[in-house]
Structure formats: C-alpha cells, structure tokens
C-alpha cells in the first residue's frame, strides 16, 4: 500500500467537495474492492474520502411502490431489512449470497454499484429492476448507468447517494460462483415489473447486459421452461481458466431457468 491521506466527512456536500478538489482522490465505502487494490499497489490515491461517517447515506426506506437503499447500506443490512424482504425478496436473497459473512458486514450497495465489477451481484438487480441511481447531482436510469467493465455514467467527483428500486411483481436471481474467487461466473436476474419483463446477465460478460430474447419469451410465458431453451450467444462473453465463453453462455440459460423458478 502506498501512503495516502485520509478524510472522513460527515455530509454528502463535504464529501463531494473533497472528491471534486482532486482527481486522484478516491471515495471509500466498504472497501471490499478498493482495499485489496491498495494493498496490491494497484491504486495510488492522493487521499481517501471515507463515506462511513455520513449518516444520510445509510438505511433502507419504503415509499409507495419503491424501495430506496442508501449508498452506504451494507449487504448484511439489505439481507436483514424487513422492507426489502417483504417488497423485493430477490434483492434480499441476493445480499445473502454476496461474498462471505465478512464481506457482507463491510461491503455496501453503493460501493458495489459505483464500482460496477462485471462479476458483482448488485448491478444485475439494479438493471434488472429498472432502478434509478441517485447521485448528489442527478437521477440516472439504470439503462443509462452501466457502461461496461468498471465503467458507469458517474462523472468525476459525482457521488452515488442512493438507489431507488421500483417494487416488482416478481423477481428472482440465480448465479454460479467462480470456483476460486466465488464472484459471479454467470448470473441472471429476472423481474416482472409493471413496465415489462427484464432479464439481466451478470458475471458472464464484460459488464451487465439485458438478455432480450429471454425478456420476450418470459413476457409471453412467465415460466422456467420459456427460457430454458433460449441460448445465449457466446460471442463477447468471458473466457478464462475457469470456463470457456461457451460454458458461460450455457450457464446463462441454466441460471435464467433457476431464477424464474425461484422468483417471488
């Protein structure tokens, strides 16, 4: 780890001011990605802006037909939230299968969504539920937010403050873990919302993406069998020592079927 300075602001405004002042400053939320990167000297921030002292970034609220999750809400809090469990059980379930108990007690939803690791869990739920990413400056629709591997619509200095999830009729999530890292090797989030069916793939490609063939099939017939036979093209999917693109493409169909089966 290289030396860096450390700030712990207590308001979003102060955090944004600090982050805007220096392009090499980095925000740290749960640190589950950034800390290992710092330890491996892969990242050299001038200073860290620790968001854990900002009370307004934390917590889950239900307002009408949406659930709002503060950026600093930890996975364990999502997992245990009565609001999330009753309104979007697939999201609560997703939180239970992120990393391990240590990760779930440190990692935050905002950190995961801002980082947009292709093998992370939450981006699939954000895109799959058609959520809105709320920053200190604006509101960004999920469809506009994710822009490929570790890339999002966030501008430099812009801070993700909350995510608003419309409550779906039904949603489900299934994933296959990478046998080594236990990140997602291929996952599928399915949701039946008032605006239609969404099917999102994570882990398998360079970023989350919608599987439109499956969306159409499920719109016509919401059942596991409707997606089981739909093949995901392997072009552009990840291929490594843990599995070929063809294997991942196959897993997409399997996970889609499971996600629909488990949807609630």
């Amino acid at each position: 780890m290289y030396d860096f300075d450390y700030h712990k602001p207590s308001s979003v405004a102060d955090a944004v001011k600090l982050l805007s002042a220096d392009p090499d400053a980095r925000a740290i939320s749960g640190g589950q990605t950034l800390l290992p990167a710092l330890k491996h000297r892969l990242n050299r921030p001038t200073y860290l802006v620790d968001l854990s002292g900002i009370a307004e970034l934390r917590g889950v609220k239900r307002e009408g037909d949406k659930i709002t999750v503060g950026a600093m809400t930890r996975h364990i809090e999502v997992q245990n939230s009565p609001e999330v469990k009753s309104a979007i059980p697939a999201l609560a379930y997703m939180a239970t299968v992120i990393g391990d108990i240590q990760v779930r007690n440190r990692g935050t939803m905002g950190g995961s969504v801002a980082n947009n690791d292709p093998a992370a869990d939450y981006p699939s739920a954000v895109l799959g539920l058609g959520a809105t990413v709320v920053t200190d400056k604006r509101r960004i629709a999920a469809d506009d937010y994710f822009q490929g591997m570790f890339t999002t619509a966030l501008e430099p200095g812009e801070l993700l403050v909350a995510i608003e999830f419309p409550i779906p009729e039904k949603a489900g999530y299934a994933k296959m873990r990478n046998p080594a890292s236990r990140y997602v090797m291929a996952g599928v989030f399915v949701a039946k919302t008032k605006d239609g069916v969404r099917v999102v793939v994570n882990g398998a490609g360079p970023g989350v993406f919608r599987q439109t063939d499956m969306e159409q099939a499920l719109s016509a017939n919401w059942s596991p069998d409707a997606v089981a036979g739909i093949k995901q093209a392997s072009e552009g999917l990840n291929s490594d020592i843990h599995g070929s693109a063809e294997y991942r493409a196959h897993l997409v169909s399997v996970m889609a079927k499971r996600a629909v089966t488990d949807a609630g």
Partner: peptide
C-alpha cells in the same frame, strides 16, 4: 475437484492468487 496451478505460454502463473486458485 478444485486446485490447479496454471502457467501460460510465457511462464506467467495465471492462478497466482486466491482470485484464480481454487482452494
């Protein structure tokens, strides 16, 4: 079922961390 040290053609250890070495 899980473990394997994998070197690529240039002699780099692909399974060089817990991210890629399955314990």
């Amino acid at each position: 079922l899980m473990e394997q040290a994998v070197y690529d053609e240039s002699g780099q250890l692909l399974s060089g961390s817990m991210m890629d070495y399955s314990l």
